[in-house]
Nucleic acid binder design. Structure first.
Lengths: 217, 217
DNA sequence: CTGAAATGTAATCAGCGATTACAAAATGCG
DNA sequence: CGCATTTTGTAATCGCTGATTACATTTCAG
């Protein structure tokens, strides 16, 4: 007698899961569910069990892919870093023909675009308490971006584009400004502002541009 | 026969607690133990039970003073805000005779002094996930400081001290810069820097001064 | 086809925040 | 002082969580 055969979906990601024993792509599904859950309930309310339930697997299943809850959230942060990197690459490619200071500006705007376009990812990556920043690739990749920014600022000085002051300090200041603006905005530190009905992203870019102008020759 | 009398310490805070049934000042002791525990084990490892154990009371005792764990940490944040306010008042008092821009600078330096002198408090107050920022006095007191900074910048412009640009934007930029620098430094974003053996506080003040100079007339 | 590896389930553990009933001490009032 | 009331801490307990283990199912290499 022939046994009923399940259609052996292998790595089919598209259609309805069909409730097989093996999920097929659980790791990625868990990451997406985590992000969605943070959106809905907030970062502190996210439990591994809730994520598992949303995906439709048993409470212990996620631990086959992530040894700890921290590892799960760190993986989300890694994805966040991927997207940031993509956004930065895109911004730099579009500004490839401009001078060093304008490329620094483009990189900053790429950062804002990413942070405001992926608020959950930005929140996770900037909340050290829930991820393993040092024990992952995050620190190295973060330092790499920082080095790129510092290099640009040095180039800008060498090209006579800066007014005065230490270029390394300018680079650090720009980075801190961008990080502070994004974080404060997401934390609701810009309630009404003074000008109303303004896109937060545009407003933040305006402030960043003012900074760029203040250091330009 | 005369009963042994416990010396009825009332509100003695000084000496060794002596293991009475009533602690005498449990609320404050819990707050201090929480800060100490965050120093030792990190913010995410702090549990109400651990705090209770460090103080030497039962696991349920803290809930007589703080309804939730969040309330406990929010109380720590309130203390942090008290200290920040003290530091700002001190800085402004010392700069009472200077112009608006220099008073803005003094306020910024007061913030840095506080953040670097009380890293745990700064960490708690800047980690929204663990405190109730909106449902406490923190939001109002935070907004008050922001309003003071914005007012100073407007005064600076009125006095012709600023080079150009929107003074509100300058105020926001300075605030974001200060917040970003403090946060990045505490998160270990300034590993070696380029100049070594430099006090982080002095370095950060240097960057802030560069910002002040860049907007000054 | 078959054994090994990968992946999910079920059951279970200790620790946590939080609640409740109870005990002890401090406090206010005659 | 004496005594009731309020405050403050204890003990026991609940549901939930992160994590581990033993076991079941599926996949896959040879």
């Amino acid at each position: 007698m022939s046994r009923a055969r399940i259609p052996s979906a292998k790595t089919s990601v598209g259609g309805p899961p069909g409730r097989r024993y093996h999920h097929g792509n659980l790791r990625q599904a868990l990451l997406e569910a985590t992000v969605r859950l943070i959106e809905i309930q907030g970062l502190d309310q996210v439990s591994v069990r809730a994520v598992a339930k949303m995906v439709g697997v048993s409470p212990g299943a996620p631990f086959r892919h992530f040894p700890t809850r921290t590892a799960l959230l760190t993986a989300v942060a890694e994805q966040a870093m991927d997207r940031l990197r993509d956004e930065i690459d895109k911004a730099l490619a579009a500004a490839a023909d401009e001078n060093a200071l304008m490329r620094y500006r483009a990189l900053g705007i790429g950062f804002f675009t990413w942070a405001f376009g992926n608020p959950v990812h930005f929140q996770v990556i900037s909340t050290r308490a829930v991820i393993d920043f040092e024990g992952s690739s995050l620190r190295a990749r973060n330092d790499e971006i920082r080095a790129v920014m510092a290099g640009m600022m040095r180039d800008a000085q060498a090209a006579g584009l800066l007014r005065r002051g230490d270029p390394v300090r300018h680079a650090v200041a720009g980075r801190a400004l961008a990080y502070g603006l994004a974080r404060m905005s997401i934390d609701g530190q810009f309630p009404s502002w003074d000008v109303e009905d303004l896109n937060p992203l545009q407003e933040v870019i305006g402030i960043f541009d003012q900074f760029i102008a203040s250091i330009a020759a």
